[in-house]
Nucleic acid binder design. Structure first.
Lengths: 108, 108
DNA sequence: ATTTTTCATCGTAATATTGCGATAATTGAT
DNA sequence: ATCAATTATCGCAATATTACGATGAAAAAT
């Protein structure tokens, strides 16, 4: 085993889990925070910013791209990354609705 | 390697990533949704609800407990689980603030 | 005392993630 | 054509996660 049984869950549950997975690493949080701070897009200065190798940073950027939270503009030899507003809003809304669905419990 | 370099990130970044990690599996999303739906606490009926073995469900419950999103009341031989309102609010707020910090970008 | 019920934990196998050095790939500049 | 700069990808090692059967632990009921 070791592989998640995605087939047995709904598309919504899988999507929410997938968005959360993209946020489930401090380096990716730091990358997104940096992209928010420097409104203009960022490329490889993230490597200077973070104590991680270029290869590792590139891998984290790939994971964020995979779920769509960021997008990159090729400006050779650079790649300018920035937050994808559409998916950002989707994530914000989806997670927001999820957390607001809880209205308190009696027991415990 | 294979281990996350937590030391080089802030406590806030690590905590946010850790909360996200707890949500980064559809089974755990399903568990939390079930706990929200059935306001009263739930124990092993999750095993009937989910197409996963008892051992696997227990492991997911442990992960949710680890970050504090749920808590359990021992009522032998049962264990009644429910959402931990304090941590739930923390997660909601932390993630909410994170997503709201983005105010749009120009490029890309 | 034994049985039953419920849940946690152990052990194990399969797969995924993290991290990095080395190597490609791309394109502008010389 | 070669070089420099930047980023992606490959290959590898270490560790983590997912999943499950089997076993253990706890306490009520017989």
């Amino acid at each position: 085993m070791g592989a998640t049984k995605t087939e047995v869950f709904t598309a919504e549950q899988n999507r929410l889990a997938d968005l959360a997975k993209a946020l489930a690493h401090p380096a990716r949080i730091a990358i997104l925070e940096h992209l928010m701070r420097t409104k203009s897009c960022i490329c490889g200065e993230l490597v200077d910013e973070l104590p991680l190798s270029q290869a590792t940073v590139s891998q984290h950027l790939k994971e964020l791209s995979r779920v769509g939270l960021i997008k990159g503009n090729i400006d050779p030899p650079r790649v300018c990354y920035c937050i994808n507003e559409t998916v950002w809003t989707e994530a914000k809304t989806t997670l927001g609705l999820f957390f607001e669905a809880f209205t308190g419990n009696d027991c415990c």
